[in-house]
Design a protein around this nucleic acid. Structure first.
Lengths: 350, 350
DNA sequence: AAGCTTGCGGCAAGCGGTTGCCAAAAGTTG
DNA sequence: CAACTTTTGGCAACCGCTTGCCGCAAGCTT
């Protein structure tokens, strides 16, 4: 631009800004700007540390060369990777997609790379990932962690992390307000005249599963309902058939199901068996995943802003990584829930 | 293990393998094994280059220290990052979930990190990501790339990549056998007695959208059908309402829809308007995403092994990255498709 | 036994940045 | 204008690992 004649002779031997075959390094920029690499480095990462005039020169040089700092090298010397790992138990589960979406969004906004890991519902894989990636990520977001409290505590001492849907005394946490949700759901069922209710349990290692059951039992008992529990089931639609059959045998007229996947599976099975929902049995899912609104019948379910939860988790993690002097880091965020009533719940059969 | 007495005195001051506060480096391993760092490096990455006895010693030392090489450092010096970036136009779309799953799976199996990027349906963001990440990823998988042929060609000269669902002469590609699928779908409709068919178009920048329309028009015309086209629509359920209304106005009795998301949205709208599917109108989607089997009515759709496509894409990319002397790298993989007939298609209204 | 391979391991120079420390330059002050 | 403080920028030592090159020692050949 500034020197078209050079453009015209791109192969000039002594060309100062001759295109190297390799991408430009900080050294190229330094040379072009006539400063030392250290100055370039500072101009780019701590602009206030450098004279505005110099900075502008450097920025121009960088722009001209189309310079992009190597995150590898930066990571090596600074110890920071500018990446965050998000660990989910099952990438297959639409529920986690929402959270992944949230984290992805927020991380991207912060210019941080997301490293996605599927831990396959296994605490070993989770620990393993945590260990293996300790140098390649600045922090971790553990969605529905399968770790024990002790493991969690230990890990959180070494690496910055925030847990999602898994209470922890040691690490910041973002949670779904499950108790409130279950109570809302039971209230809804009670108002429809249901007396026999059944909790359809998910994975035993899931903390939120335990929570849900606990609140369910307490509150349903308090209401004088007959409470049943079946499970555990894998949180997949394919487990729904067995769950539906078992649920029917309990004699309950309404089920609160660990998650929507399972609930949708149950819906399918019930339909196949000719058991009408909600006329014969009401079903309440949890999570309001993609599909809950258009399955048949549309599923009454516990909704919460999962994607936003992902964003919040990222914010909390980033706050932990770059603590602002002023603000204390938040240790807990509870996401509100509400019951989205659709067509899978109705009056108890007479 | 080999020396329990040391175990018993973990705080011994002169302890050779005293726990450093920092994670062990290759130097620590070298020291413990009594060799040079270069030897450790080789023992770990090119085992045949080192004497079996030495190698064992090194491996033991590494295991004892719980050594994990820093991918950063490794990347810096070797130029390889052991990471692959997967670029999808919209992480929100369940279709891409399947492919992400596939790539994630296969990459993990190969010990490669997946870098997930949402390009937001924009070719600029795509180019940008491609550029910014050129040093942080060894290769790229471009799902449904929005780039022009020229851009694609240019990019593929600098970086190893494979495209998915986007033909390219310059880069290896894995494709869905769209023509066959569309023909199957039309055949299905023809056999049900439909004569007026409508293509509901997706994003104009989508190559597969163009392909689908092209084949649709050709084949439907050949069959003497009356062909309509509406759109473009954003490939989301929310666009389904407008699409449904427009489709009805065309007078067509059957629609082939760009993708399931849009199709499901149409289903909802048609139901709301009291237009029965399939009695009044038949709908065929594409992709067989999560939810297509349990929406109402269950969607007849074009299925293909998307997740497997993701795996294949990874294989092709890895083959490109580590070419085996023997085998030539495959330039094209076409994934088979079939029509999954469910309940959204039926005989043409009389 | 002398001369040659061959296998194995070490040396040291990077890879592309960051950063502590220091000196020169610039700005202040009396 | 000298003495002092504050900016500003350069030097150079890493960060942890890879790799080209070299030399030594053991195994072969004739």
């Amino acid at each position: 631009m500034a020197n078209p004649s050079v453009e015209a002779a791109p192969q000039g031997a002594g060309d100062a800004n001759a295109r190297r075959d390799r991408p430009p390094t900080i050294r190229d920029v330094a040379e072009l700007a006539g400063v030392a690499t250290s100055t370039v480095s500072r101009a780019l990462s701590r602009p206030e540390r450098v004279n505005p005039r110099t900075r502008v020169r450097i920025e121009e040089a960088a722009a001209e060369l189309n310079y992009i700092p190597s995150s590898q090298a930066r990571g090596l010397s600074s110890g920071r990777t500018n990446a965050v790992a998000v660990l989910v138990p099952d990438i297959t589960n639409p529920f986690y997609f929402d959270i992944i979406r949230g984290t992805q969004h927020q991380l991207k906004a912060a210019g941080v790379t997301q490293l996605l890991v599927d831990t396959e519902e296994s605490s070993e894989m989770e620990l393993d990932a945590l260990h293996k990636m300790r140098k390649s990520a600045d922090g971790f977001i553990l969605a529905a962690s399968r770790l024990t409290d002790a493991q969690l505590t230990e890990v959180s001492q070494t690496q910055p992390l925030v847990t999602f849907n898994r209470a922890s005394t040691s690490a910041p946490t973002v949670m779904i307000d499950t108790p409130s949700a279950i109570i809302q759901a039971l209230e809804h069922l009670a108002s429809l005249g249901h007396h026999k209710v059944c909790y359809v349990a998910g994975p035993p290692t899931s903390w939120s599963n335990q929570m849900r059951w606990k609140v369910f039992e307490e509150d349903a008992t308090k209401r004088g309902m007959e409470v049943h529990r079946i499970g555990p089931y894998a949180p997949k639609t394919t487990s729904g058939a067995a769950a539906a059959d078992a649920a029917v045998r309990t004699g309950a007229t309404a089920c609160i199901v660990f998650n929507d996947l399972l609930a949708i599976g149950m819906l399918q099975r019930l339909k196949a068996r000719g058991i009408r929902v909600p006329a014969d049995m009401s079903i309440i899912g949890s999570d309001d995943i993609f599909g809950a609104d258009f399955c048949n019948p549309p599923l009454t379910t516990i909704s919460s802003p999962i994607e936003q939860a992902g964003r919040v988790a990222v914010s909390m993690l980033l706050a932990q990584l770059n603590p602002l002097p002023g603000s204390a880091t938040r240790k807990l965020a509870v996401m509100p829930t509400h019951l989205t009533v659709r067509e899978s719940t109705g009056p108890a059969p007479a």
